[in-house]
């Protein structure tokens, strides 16, 4: 009797979440797999086997998109190292840290589309960056940052790093606030240098956050950069800055090829799944309690 009442209560509390999650996550995940084997035009759905998969892997834009996602991964270790360094400086209450805390978190608050439009103007061929470079006598460094396929992806990576760094700093800073002070005091008494202190105390103490952030950042580089690409480059010039998400968007909604778009979504999902499983294997044990 008591058990039945408990079961009813649990179900009632979980029901709304289960319904919404089922509808927004589970139903589409099943459907997208089904659609990836179909040709879809209007209300006409027809199974065509693996054709969509064959087509996307023969599409240079899809290959370029995946390749660019992997290149963007290169920024993850840089973001992490910079974030640890600057979070430590804030934590040590360096002169002016309150002001710095405000400015460093600023990129995190700004919307990516806003950042995209602003940086678009800054990096223009006749924008302020090139203007400064010329004034400083560094004309040889002047490039069409987003306009040439040689530099566009790296410029895009810079903008992504500029934005993502803020969040990583907040997270590590927040974690540092709860590190036991005595650890540092003991190390100082033992005469440990600044660098040693942080390598042997800060990094191990923050390992959970750092691993959490690396997963978040890796996923970001694969599946959360549509906004940057859409506002800054639209994938161009050529295919130099196209990424998987943008490929899915253009294929499904501009070229109205929902089948190929679904196949690309499934591939992206499989990559994500591999990463989630790897993360669960590596850190799953500590995660739950």
């Amino acid at each position: 009797m008591r058990n039945r009442q408990k079961f009813t209560e649990i179900s009632l509390f979980l029901l709304p979440a289960a319904l919404v999650i089922g509808f927004i996550y589970l139903f589409p995940l099943v459907k997208v797999i089904q659609y990836s084997f179909m040709r879809i035009s209007g209300n006409n759905f027809k199974y065509i086997g693996f054709t969509n998969y064959v087509n996307i892997f023969n599409d240079p834009r899809f290959i370029a998109g995946l390749k660019n996602n992997f290149i963007l991964l290169l920024s993850v270790p840089f973001i992490l190292v910079l974030a640890i360094f600057f979070a430590v400086l804030l934590y040590e209450r360096m002169a002016g840290w309150k002001f710095y805390r405000f400015t460093l978190f600023l990129p995190y608050i700004l919307a990516i589309p806003v950042i995209g439009v602003v940086f678009g103007y800054i990096f223009q061929l006749n924008g302020i960056l090139n203007f400064f470079l010329e004034k400083l006598g560094l004309s040889f460094l002047i490039h069409d940052w987003f306009g040439s396929s040689k530099y566009s992806l790296w410029t895009l990576m810079f903008v992504i790093m500029w934005k993502e760094l803020g969040f990583s700093i907040i997270m590590i800073f927040a974690r540092l606030l709860s590190v036991n002070q005595e650890l540092y005091e003991a190390a100082e008494i033992d005469g440990a240098s600044w660098l040693k202190k942080h390598i042997y105390i800060t990094i191990p103490q923050c390992l959970n956050v750092i691993s959490f952030l690396s997963v978040i950042l890796i996923i970001t580089m694969f599946a959360w950069i549509f906004n940057y690409v859409f506002t800054l480059t639209r994938g161009g010039p050529g295919t130099s800055t196209i990424v998987s998400e943008f490929y899915i968007y253009t294929t499904a909604f501009r070229d109205s090829n929902m089948g190929m778009g679904s196949a690309a979504s499934v591939i992206l999902f499989l990559i994500m799944l591999a990463m989630i499983i790897a993360y669960a294997k590596l850190f799953g044990k500590e995660e739950v309690d």
Binding site: L14, F27, Y35, I219, E245, M258, S265, L268, I276
Partner: peptide, 26 residues
């Protein structure tokens, strides 16, 4: 209980672009 929580945590990592096409069609 723990299974449900783990499942919910893993959903955090699924980007919306993957659900986009079925949601749009629906």
């Amino acid at each position: 209980r723990e299974g449900i929580l783990k499942f919910v945590i893993s959903l955090m990592m699924v980007p919306p672009v993957i659900m986009l096409i079925p949601l749009f069609i629906f």
